[in-house]
């Protein structure tokens, strides 16, 4: 499956298993930047790791410092390889810009990306390729 017309937020490309959630993420309070794991037991991605995944989520919420948390995951080697948002927020955009993590917004009406499927994000081309 190919999803075209994605909006580039941060350029570059990355590939990995899709980690998909419909719940927003507070990167400061819900992510352990050293391990890349989601630490909030209330979150549906609890205990899942961001390392090497294509993170598909709506947008970030809460602390403005979450941008540094995203950058920290890169410094600790546990960053996602790409990020796909329904609507990228300022925290995600700025954190990923500094961490060199490609980011795109999904176009309206895009088909769902299956949990665990291998996804390749080519931000400059505005394209996501999903292998089942």
């Amino acid at each position: 499956m190919i999803i075209n017309n994605c909006k580039k937020i941060v350029g570059g490309s990355g590939e990995g298993p899709a980690l998909v959630t419909a719940q927003p993420i507070n990167f400061l309070s819900m992510v352990d930047a050293k391990t890349g794991k989601i630490t909030d037991p209330m979150h549906e991605l609890y205990k899942k790791s961001l390392k090497g995944v294509v993170l598909v989520f709506p947008y970030a919420i809460g602390s403005s410092v979450g941008a540094y948390s995203i950058y920290s995951t890169r410094e600790y080697g546990v960053a996602p390889s790409a990020v796909v948002c329904y609507k990228t927020d300022i925290t995600t955009a700025s954190g990923c810009a500094i961490a060199d993590i490609p980011v795109v917004d999904l176009p309206k009406g895009a088909p769902p990306i299956k949990q665990g499927s291998i996804a390749k994000v080519e931000a400059d081309a505005g394209r996501i390729t999903v292998k089942v």
């Binding site: 909006k7 937020i9 941060v10 410092v65 540094y68 948390s69 920290s72 990923c96 980011v103």
Partner: peptide
């Protein structure tokens, strides 16, 4: 990146920036 994500057409001057990311416990 934030201009693209918020749909901006241009950058404008600002008069004041207030910065977070100070506490070592938060930025490591």
């Amino acid at each position: 990146a934030i201009g693209e994500s918020t749909g901006a057409k241009k950058l404008i001057p600002i008069k004041w920036a207030h910065l977070s990311g100070v506490n070592y416990n938060t930025i490591g």
